[in-house]
Design a protein around this nucleic acid. Structure first.
Lengths: 344, 344
DNA sequence: TTGTACGCGTTATCAG
DNA sequence: CTGATAACGCGTACAA
């Protein structure tokens, strides 16, 4: 019974054979007009096309893919569609892939390793042609597994120096260093940093970047003025408050992301400090949140959409070349100073 | 040449036949142990399982789907992965679908009708088993087309009363009405509303809800105190400023979304008004942005993740029942009063 | 220009 | 329990 499922009955389950019969030709000819391959007499082409039009016949992509051994499918594993970055990257990725005839199969892992493995297994069975991996942790275990995959893999927003795996991302070390430098160059010396969690690779890189800048300027980052949060607005607020309890207040605060920067600004304002007159505040990205700040926030601009696009390009290139060369593509960033920052 | 593409060469291109040959059985038997269908002697099952394990063989899902006439694929069309709602809904949708053995194929349309049609065509060819449609406009044209589709369709975050198409969403009219009522019940009578664009169905419903509440309280919404923006933070700011230029200032401002509410708060504070002492402000959702406000923002809570889950359930139910009954599922909301609102 | 016939990798039916 | 063998719907040499 192929009609068990109601909707099946509504499907125009015509196949090439039936179209061929109606047209009085063979399936080969129908296939030819469908794929614009080979020569077909104008009149028969017309006839077949009309028939297709009338009957609403559409080729079964599954069968085609099976025959062609090509699925045009790219798998994407994400922690989840949270934050502003991932969704935007997905937009770019999807647009670029779609324009090149690929479809995106998305899978959320919630950051759980077994889920990731399960999804990868599914991808293998579905014969995806490539995979984009955009989660928060990329361990050696991951690396080992990915390198054995029978299709190209592109890691998003994570650094890997492993040969055989490509990655696209931002230069977290450098952008953090530049941001810190921009504050230092304005004369700030009493410097506070509210960074992201140690468990995040990018947060560690950003922290190192900040420290590198401070070192260049010969500025000592007092441990009491260095905090770590989980990128939430509330963390920025709480950690800023802790910092304000210190003897020596900072004149500049750099936060690991916009959210914590906004939290810091709110905390400062509510405790009677002026921004930027008393304290300059800067974040390390430039999301919509930055616009929510009552004081136009300084930060670092970079495009997640472009990142997604870039990853798609690497992917397509890898698929078409038959192998993905080891590549590390860094997307540009741009320091953006607004009202929340002033010279001392 | 099936080895044109490099990665193909790495694929474990074993098929059932080869496994069968290695095990000295027929493909039918291999298929049986793979699908736990039918009885297989323990010893041969063991042997086959070991062989599968050793060779790393994995069934070709494409071939299986072709034979079974079941793709386990659900298509999703979104404008784009923007805002906070869609990505969260996608999370819920994906989780629930994935737990039930379905995969999500996503497609962005950028809100362009032709793109939507193109994606629908692709879905049909890929023989998806259902489609979720989550864009900003749902016209009669859409409705007409969707009703003819050979698979169930669930509309997300849009109202349709069309039989044959299900939809899941929030009660925009009611939640706006309740939010407005909560302000009115606190004694506010000089009332301003900064709504969303007329082109958005939900914005229109919210506006109507607000007006219904006002009517109940016999309060007249002065045209000068009613504005429409595009849901951006900046719109809230600009429109609030316009309102402040009016003769009679409002004591309460309701915004169509959090973003505009935050913009309004910022504008008020920067122009010397106190929130909520001088003006109460409230939004109509409760996203992360609300936390960014320096004054804890009041709003309306509802879960996009739950919405996605619900849509997935409707979908699965529809697929399994063979037909999707006309259903309209409204998810709960909750008025949430915080510091930004006070009685007059 | 067109048709024949086989392959793609599974599932499922029906005998043994 | 197990094995042929026919679908599933399409692409494509190879012939005609």
């Amino acid at each position: 019974m192929q009609f068990k499922r109601g909707f099946m009955m509504k499907v125009n389950d015509l196949n090439m054979k039936e179209i061929a019969k109606l047209a009085g030709v063979s399936t080969a000819t129908v296939s030819r007009v469908l794929n614009h391959s080979g020569k077909v007499k104008e009149s028969t082409r017309k006839k077949i096309e009309e028939l297709i039009e009338q009957t609403g016949y559409r080729p079964n992509v599954l069968a085609r893919e099976l025959a062609e051994k090509k699925t045009n499918l790219i798998g994407l594993i994400v922690h989840a569609m949270t934050g502003e970055g991932i969704p935007k990257a997905v937009n770019g990725l999807n647009e670029q892939l779609s324009e090149n005839g690929y479809s995106l199969l998305i899978a959320g892992s919630n950051g759980i390793f077994e889920n990731e493995m399960k999804q990868i297994e599914l991808f293998r069975q579905k014969r995806v042609e490539g995979m984009v991996f955009a989660t928060r942790q990329f361990t050696e275990e991951h690396e080992k597994i990915m390198k054995k995959l029978p299709f190209p893999v592109v890691i998003l927003m994570q650094d890997t120096d492993s040969a055989g795996i490509s990655n696209a991302g931002f230069d977290n070390f450098q952008l953090a260093k530049e941001a810190a430098s921009s504050l230092l160059s304005l004369g700030h010396r009493r410097f506070a940093y509210i960074g992201g969690p140690e468990s995040s690779d990018s947060a560690v890189l950003r922290e190192n970047g900040v420290k590198a800048a401070l070192k260049e300027y010969g500025v000592y980052l007092r441990p009491a003025l260095q905090k770590r949060g989980s990128y939430h607005i509330g963390d920025g607020y709480t950690l800023m408050k802790q910092i304000l309890n210190e003897q020596e207040k900072p004149t500049a605060v750099l936060a690991g992301n916009d959210g914590m920067a906004v939290g810091a600004v709110n905390c400062l304002l509510q405790h009677g400090y002026r921004v930027p007159e008393d304290v300059s505040v800067m974040g390390l990205d430039d999301t919509d949140l930055a616009q929510a700040s009552i004081i136009p926030l300084s930060g670092v601009q970079y495009s997640y959409t472009a990142l997604g696009r870039e990853a798609a390009n690497m992917m397509i290139q890898g698929i078409e070349a038959g192998e993905l060369l080891y590549e590390k593509r860094i997307l540009p960033h741009n320091i953006c100073i607004r009202q929340s920052v002033s010279s001392i």
